[in-house]
């Protein structure tokens, strides 16, 4: 194989031009899924993290069971289960609905654990000071504990978000033609790897700024600890 053959197989402009429309539509679906799934996961995670501060065992044990279950189940299995299983329970879900539910369960549990660690990293004295001025439990959470908790685990939250965006590629199993699915389609039609390379570049361009931001935050945290 010559170098020209290699270029032709992986970086063919001609193929790229042909594949671009469906890659673009796949990219838009990946963006749409991310825009649905990330906020849902953060909201679910916040609720779980707040519940983890409740001492009652009637909250505690179901919560542990919930988080363990949905962290242990592979997201792909969960997604198929939601999409194929819920209709048997008489609940029809669209493909997007299934992705939203599946990701809410899975990534919510992950975000929840990150945020819980953040809440636990806030010194007890903060809570006591706030409560001593008459703030309620939830006011203290909202105005004093959570802002500090989020700041303390921001790098982990962003890491998690990167993983979630990449994970949206599993939505293709419920027939949502996201970016990676479209790239594989284009590849199988053209017998050429260029669409896959293009998808890789698109993912990279999408996530690289976030990765940069993450390392800057991590460096700042290390510097802050000194």
């Amino acid at each position: 194989m010559t170098f020209d053959d290699f270029l032709l197989a992986f970086f063919s402009l001609d193929i790229l031009r042909q594949a671009w429309p469906i890659l673009w539509s796949g990219f838009k679906i990946t963006l749409l899924l991310s825009a649905i799934v990330v906020p849902l996961g953060v909201i679910g995670g916040t609720v779980l993290a707040l519940l983890s501060t409740v001492r009652s065992r009637w909250v505690r044990w179901p919560l542990i069971a919930w988080v363990d279950l949905f962290r242990a189940l592979p997201p792909l299995v969960l997604l198929v289960f939601v999409y194929a299983g819920l209709p048997f329970a008489g609940i029809e879900v669209s493909a997007i609905g299934a992705v939203a539910i599946g990701f809410f369960l899975n990534t919510g549990a992950y975000y929840g654990e990150v945020l819980r660690a953040g809440i636990e990293s806030v010194p007890r004295g903060q809570l006591e000071a706030a409560r001593s001025t008459g703030l309620t439990r939830w006011q203290t959470m909202a105005h004093v504990v959570l802002p500090q908790a989020v700041r303390n685990v921001l790098p982990d939250l962003i890491s998690n978000t990167l993983e979630v965006v990449k994970l949206t590629s599993i939505a293709s199993v419920v027939a949502l033609p996201e970016l990676l699915f479209q790239a594989r389609q284009a590849q199988s039609v053209t017998y050429n790897a260029t669409p896959i390379m293009a998808a890789a570049v698109i993912y990279f361009l999408l996530l690289w700024p976030v990765v940069r931001l993450l390392s800057r935050l991590e460096n700042r945290q290390i510097a802050g600890r000194r």
Binding site: Q126, E128, A129, T133
Partner: peptide, 10 residues
């Protein structure tokens, strides 16, 4: 009102 040893400012 309460004042703490470690200040506990936000």
């Amino acid at each position: 009102g309460m004042v703490f040893q470690s200040f506990n400012l936000y």
